[in-house]
Amino acid sequence: MINACRMVPAFLLSVPAGVLADRSDRRKLLILLQAGIMPSTFCVGYLLAADSPFWLLAVVVTLRSALMAVVIPVRNSLIPNLVPESQVASAVAVDSAVRNLSRIVGPALAGTLLAVMEVEDVFWISGCSIVAVLLSLFVVHPESNRDAVFNNIKADIQEAAVYA
C-alpha cells in the first residue's frame, strides 16, 4: 500500500510535470517544490513517532511523492541550462554519476543509522539533507533558458507523446 501510494502519483503526474518543466522558471519552481518536500519529510517522521493511523501516513506519503514526481523532470531540464552548450553531454554524464552514487550512499547510510537510532530520527536527518539542494539552488545562476517552450498545453502533451 505504502509503495503504491508512492508510485501511482509519480506515474500519473509524469506527463503534466514535464509540461510544467517546459514552461516555468525551473530554478524557482524547484525551490518551491523542495521547500514543500522538506516539511512533508518531517511530517512523515512525526507521524511515525506519534504512532498515527496508517491511512494518515499514506495520505502524507502520497502528497509527498506527488511533489517528488514534479521535481524529477524539472531537475533534469534545469541541468542543461546550467552549463554552456559544449558541456551539456558531460553534464548529463556527471548527473547520472551523482544519481547512482547517491543511490549507493543513501541506503547504506540509512541502514547504518537504523541500526543505531530510532526510525523517526532517520527522517529528521534525511529531511535536513534537503537543505543542501535548496542552498545550491539559491546560489546557482542558469546560463540560459534553453529548451524552454511556450506552446499551448495540448501541443506540449503531443510533443511528449512523440518522444514516447
Binding site: 531537475r75 546550467l82 551523482v98 547517491s102 543513501g106 541506503p107 540509512a110 529531511g127 539552488l137 546560463e143
Partner: peptide, 26 residues
C-alpha cells in the same frame, strides 16, 4: 562550470537523503 558543480554537490546530498527516506519508510 561553477553553477553546475554547486548544483551537483547539492543534489548528491539531497538525493542520498531521498534514498534514506525510502529505506526508512519501508
Amino acid at each position: 562550470s561553477r553553477s553546475f558543480g554547486i548544483f551537483a554537490a547539492g543534489n548528491l546530498v539531497s538525493q542520498a537523503g531521498e534514498w534514506m527516506t525510502l529505506v526508512a519508510l519501508n
